[in-house]
């Protein structure tokens, strides 16, 4: 309700400077540049990686069972892997549970954040707002479960490197700083939205100088920047995994790759 009221202030005049007293400053410029840089690294880095995956040939048919025998079957299989973590469910119920809590919550949280970049806000984005809020807690719980395994399960401890802990720390820190914005000192959401919209429209608006907010935003920028260079590549990777995205039709359709074409000469 409060939100609606605040959002309505943008409708008539979205250029209105709601924080007229603060004005443009070095902080705003720093964060604006930080975000442009982070987004650039994220988008270009990811595009480079995806291009690399797409261009590297898959020499043989190597789908794992139960392998679909049609392209439609592959689409369904991929949907089950991405939305339900089907294979992980077969493997380990605890990891599955925590992974599901974390990722599902992450999706909701990300969707909830869309409202900062829209004017007017889409109806469905408004509808999920209350769920998105709980999702913040759920996300942290899921992360805590995954992190606990890295200490408690001997085998998982053995395979964890510092970066695996830091990655979880980063997500937890983003989650907690985000929750602090909501439940700690209340942030000036209106000003924040103006800042976000300003970034999108290349018409910078001042950023409220609140410590938790600055931490939250800096960590998100960091996350975007490391995404294309870290294990977060599992997100695009799963779609390119030959054991999961191939049709099981090796006998009926000749699978050819560059290397095999050379054999035919």
């Amino acid at each position: 309700m409060l939100l609606k009221k605040m959002d309505s202030r943008f409708r008539g005049n979205d250029r209105m400077d709601v924080n007229g007293d603060r004005g443009m400053n070095a902080l705003t410029v720093t964060y604006a540049l930080l975000f442009y840089a982070a987004v650039a690294v994220f988008v270009l880095g990811l595009a480079y990686r995806v291009r690399l995956y797409a261009r590297t040939p898959a020499p043989f048919k190597i789908p794992t069972p139960p392998a679909p025998i049609t392209q439609g079957g592959v689409v369904l299989r991929m949907a089950r892997e991405v939305c339900l973590f089907e294979s992980l469910f077969k493997a380990n119920k605890w990891i599955w549970l925590f992974a599901m809590l974390f990722h599902a919550a992450l999706v909701l949280v990300l969707l909830r954040h869309l409202r900062y970049f829209q004017e007017p806000v889409w109806t469905w984005v408004e509808l999920i707002q209350p769920f998105g809020l709980y999702a913040g807690f759920v996300m942290v719980v899921g992360l805590a479960g995954l992190w606990a395994r890295r200490f408690l399960v001997e085998r998982v401890r053995y395979i964890s490197s510092p970066s695996d802990h830091l990655m979880l720390a980063l997500f937890v820190a983003i989650g907690l700083s985000g929750l602090a914005l909501k439940y700690g000192e209340r942030t000036d959401v209106v000003a924040l939205k103006a800042f976000a919209l300003g970034l999108v429209r290349f018409d910078w608006q001042p950023l409220p100088a609140e410590p938790f907010l600055l931490v939250h935003l800096a960590l998100v920028a960091l996350l975007m920047a490391i995404f294309p260079f870290s294990k977060l590549l599992h997100a695009p990777g799963v779609f390119f995994s030959p054991t999961r995205n191939q049709v099981d039709d090796a006998r009926s359709r000749r699978h050819l790759a560059r290397f095999a074409a050379a054999f035919d000469k």
Binding site: L146, V153, H234
Partner: peptide
């Protein structure tokens, strides 16, 4: 030469499954 190798080396999240 092998998409599998490239994707597999990048994608592991050390979940332990």
């Amino acid at each position: 030469k092998s998409r599998a190798l490239r994707v597999f080396l990048d994608s592991c999240v050390k979940c332990g499954a």
